[in-house]
Nucleic acid binder design. Structure first.
Length: 446
DNA sequence: TCTGGGGTCCTGTTTCGC
DNA sequence: TCTGGCGAAACAGGACCC
């Protein structure tokens, strides 16, 4: 999907179409998750600190991500993909590999192109959003093709043309080559994929180690036999928070670690999992990050056990100077629990909430009401008894500003209310394509 | 006003059990 | 009983991806 989060917001809010839209954390330490193409023109891109984005695009619309909304769109798209083949490997909410051959959907370049064209039309019809398609003989090449296809395009790499196409490209194009490996190669005088191939396998292994060396050499020769894997098991579950200001107080740090441990266990249980290894993560004031881990005798999903382990791990880290981030994770997962019966007997706690909003979870952690200022989250949907459906443009000083529009309305009017106006209530996002016009879905999934 | 959150995989070192 | 060796886990840190 193209600029997925930002596109979904633009489709949901007519007044944002054609405008720079930036989705990400809005706090003082937020970063950009997705920038619309209008914002990218101004130099804004994902992973950029929000502060920098605001300097580059002071007039853009800034929104917090609405993952539940994006997930519902993602599920529609994934359903279209599964209609093409049982072998679908999601990489994230907005990207997946599909083995068209295994699905009997395509057997040569021409049939693949046809499937791609139809898929793009179906995605558009079902979600109202644009997606790009890369078609090639391997995962690596399909990925590169889809990058080239963005936005709103389709690129097919003809068999036999792979090496010529790859040769002049930067090594950074290859999956697995990030800033560090890129620098490493550049210092060795290797800039392009061609030069990577010329360097030879032994040299790459010497430079980058066994695993990456072999992998990159194979990719430079356009060799990639990795299969599309439909179901991949979760290997770890973790939660972490970056704080708006560094925490110095040891007691407060310990308290936050307990809350994170509880949140982590809730997620673990929600997924029906338990784990043996507890990991504590601490990012200090100077951005240095360290982890401490402890492996238990058997897997657990008991909040008290995880809390205690996390607390023990915290004792071994120096937090003087302050911490900016804390995290708690569990790995070494099993889908059963050894002391399951123990945990049950230990007290009928019924804290198995599954997939709730972070806002709600955070409120639960703190065991306090959501403060009135936070009730109207910028970008979230609301319904007004008289004016109908809209979204929060901003709130503060006891007031909330709402724009009344829906995915298929025109640009809506703006009105301001008191934050406690009884006529105003939170609402679910509306579907981007009104039901009834989605007949194409049935054709695709038949 | 510097730098999120949730993951995966790899590597080097230490520890532990046989 | 002491020692050595070996391999598997455990542990910590980093790179990378979306």
């Amino acid at each position: 999907m193209d600029a997925f989060f930002a596109s979904a917001e633009q489709a949901s809010k007519p007044s944002l179409r054609g405008k720079a839209v930036i989705v990400g954390g809005l706090g003082p330490r937020g970063v950009v998750a997705t920038a619309s193409y209008e914002a990218r023109v101004l130099g804004v891109h994902s992973a950029m600190p929000m502060a920098q984005a605001r300097r580059l695009a002071p007039n853009a619309a800034y929104l917090v991500p609405r993952f539940a909304f994006y997930r519902s769109i993602s599920e529609q798209v994934m359903a279209l993909l599964r209609a093409l083949s049982p072998l679908v490997e999601p990489l994230s909410l907005d990207e997946a590999f599909v083995d068209l051959e295994a699905g009997g959907t395509a057997w040569d370049a021409e049939s693949a192109r046809l499937a791609g064209v139809k898929l793009r039309a179906d995605i558009r019809a079902v979600t109202g959003l644009t997606g790009s398609v890369g078609l090639a003989a391997s995962k690596m090449l399909a990925k590169i093709a889809s990058e080239q296809a963005k936005p709103d395009g389709l690129v097919l790499i003809e068999p036999g043309t792979e090496r010529a196409l790859l040769g002049p490209m930067s090594v950074r194009t290859l999956p697995g080559v990030g800033p560090a490996t890129g620098d490493h190669l550049r210092r060795a005088g290797i800039h392009t994929v061609e030069e990577l191939a010329e360097a030879g396998e032994d040299e790459l292994v010497r430079l980058l180690g066994k695993s990456l060396g072999h992998a990159l050499y194979a990719m430079a020769l356009a060799r990639d036999e990795r299969p599309v894997v439909a179901e991949r098991e979760t290997k770890s579950v973790s939660v972490e928070d970056t704080y708006d200001v560094d925490i110095h107080d040891r007691v407060r740090v310990a308290l936050e670690v307990q809350r994170l441990a509880d949140r982590c266990v809730r997620r673990l249980r929600g997924a029906g999992l338990s784990g043996r290894t507890i990991v504590l993560k601490v990012r200090r004031y100077d951005f240095s990050t360290l982890t401490r881990s402890e492996t238990l005798r058997g897997p657990t999903d008991d909040p008290a056990v995880v809390r205690e382990a996390a607390a023990r791990l915290l004792e071994s880290v120096d937090t003087t100077g302050g911490v900016r981030l804390l995290g708690v994770g569990v790995s070494g997962l099993a889908d059963f629990t050894q002391e399951d019966l123990f945990a049950q007997a230990a007290g009928e706690r019924e804290a198995e909430d599954t997939g709730e909003d972070r806002e709600v979870e955070a409120a639960k952690d703190a065991a306090v009401e959501v403060p009135v200022e936070r009730r109207w989250v910028a970008g979230h949907d609301v319904a007004h008894a008289e004016f109908g459906h809209g979204w929060v443009q901003g709130s503060g000083l006891g007031r909330v500003t709402v724009r009344f529009e829906t995915p298929d309305s025109g640009v809506g009017r703006v009105r301001t209310f008191a934050v406690d106006d009884p006529a105003l209530a939170a609402a679910e996002p509306l579907p981007l394509v009104s039901r009834g016009s989605g007949a194409v879905v049935d054709g695709a999934s038949a």
